[in-house]
């Protein structure tokens, strides 16, 4: 995901802000990392450059 996409993402549950942690990034975009909602204590993964903002108990 491009960094600009981060600006429009929010927690799917509480709609609050997410903290971005980047694990792997190239010159174009973020490839892996995580998006953390501190209010809900949930970490949403970024994998293959795609943020996964599905409820984390049903995704695989």
């Amino acid at each position: 995901m491009k960094r600009e996409l981060y600006d429009i993402l929010c927690c799917p549950v509480c709609k609050g802000d997410l903290e971005l942690k980047v694990t792997e990034e190239n010159e174009v975009e973020i490839l892996t990392g995580s998006l953390i909602c501190h209010a809900c204590s949930v970490t949403y993964p970024i994998e293959d450059g795609i943020p996964n903002l599905l409820p984390q108990n049903i995704t695989s």
């Binding site: 995901m1 429009i8 799917p12 549950v13 709609k15 293959d48 795609i50 943020p51 903002l53 599905l54």
Partner: peptide
């Protein structure tokens, strides 16, 4: 994503605040 889109895996627009 391979088609060049800004993609978010989410239900409808749940994780989007724009």
């Amino acid at each position: 994503k391979l088609n060049g889109l800004n993609v978010v895996r989410t239900d409808i627009a749940a994780g989007i605040c724009r």
